[in-house]
Design a protein around this nucleic acid. Structure first.
Lengths: 181, 181
DNA sequence: GTCTATATACAGATAGAC
DNA sequence: GTCTATCTGTATATAGAC
């Protein structure tokens, strides 16, 4: 992979962006091609089918989760704090691909649903050593799911109910005091 | 409304059921008509457009949330406990219509997204007097969102990561001890 | 009220030129 | 590698018979 195909990546970027801002119904091959600045035929040279395009998103997801798991286990502020804080960040490449994947899952893609369940298991495995028991792990995971869910719901620019700043800090303190070993 | 039109309700039931089990992409007017045992033309007599069908779901949602808010504020086990426990129940008419609505929202329906945000605000208003501060309210809402999110993700029969039974009881105790005033 | 038949639009995908 | 043109399937919606 000395010179990754630029067009392929920009097609994936465009697909992801439409999924995030306009939803799964709008993320057609036609719209993706237009947003990426290629024709439908051009897109289909890089991704032979819609399934292949979705697989490209899932592949990107896997790679970014690998990096994230590493960051969780080594975070100075603590695994739980880092995990929750990163559950709300916007425009982070990982957040973007997760939201895009959850759109695909809601649209009916079984592969996307399976991928989301799989990364949830990987996160649980990474966090388990840092919390006091199984209930604490449930709590941390559900708060994170809630944060992502709200991010995923609010289309484009609607200000959602996701806490940020000092509100987020206070939430993290509360969760930590209930869950840390 | 002395005698509500039966066909209308069974069409809504069918639409809801397909949304829940097969996702938004599969919930076409054709599939809905077939599942409800009427023809496409028959369906379109009751609901003149797909938008009208979605509006029917949203109307049902509003009515069921009215009842739920009443139950939350009067629950013997406490508002927070009742709220979290009811966030995981399956086949409850309210749960069903919420999951159906979240499917519509993810499919791109702005009205469905707005309806979900609105009921979230109503729940917050109902719970606020029962928790110690704004952070506690965030925590309860996010755990509930997480429970619903996981319910919504898992298609039909896939056993998901949603806690139940004793695991759910322990989770509720943990959240209550962190949030009750 | 419910049906069949059909119009219209657009999705995903193929063929082949350049 | 990227394009245009086209095929096929399917979704929403309309028209009008019964």
């Amino acid at each position: 992979m000395s010179r990754p195909p630029h067009a392929r990546e920009s097609v994936l970027d465009a697909f992801e962006a439409i999924l995030i801002s306009d939803g799964e119904r709008s993320a057609t091959m036609d719209a993706t091609a237009r947003a990426a600045g290629v024709s439908k035929g051009g897109l289909l040279y890089h991704f032979g089918s819609k399934d292949a395009l979705e697989a490209g998103v899932l592949e990107r997801l896997g790679a970014l989760v690998d990096l994230d798991i590493e960051k969780i286990t080594t975070a100075e502020e603590g695994a739980v704090s880092y995990f929750l804080r990163s559950s709300v960040m916007q425009n982070d490449p990982l957040d973007r691909v997760i939201i895009a994947t959850s759109r695909l899952a809601q649209g009916g893609s079984a592969a996307a649903s399976a991928a989301l369940r799989e990364i949830r298991v990987r996160w649980e495995d990474a966090l388990r050593p840092h919390v006091k028991d199984a209930t604490a792990l449930d709590l941390v995971m559900l708060v994170s799911d809630g944060l992502y869910f709200n991010n995923a719901l609010q289309g484009g620019s609607i200000p959602g109910p996701v806490p940020s700043g000092a509100e987020l800090d206070a939430l993290i303190v509360m969760v930590e005091s209930a869950t840390l070993r």
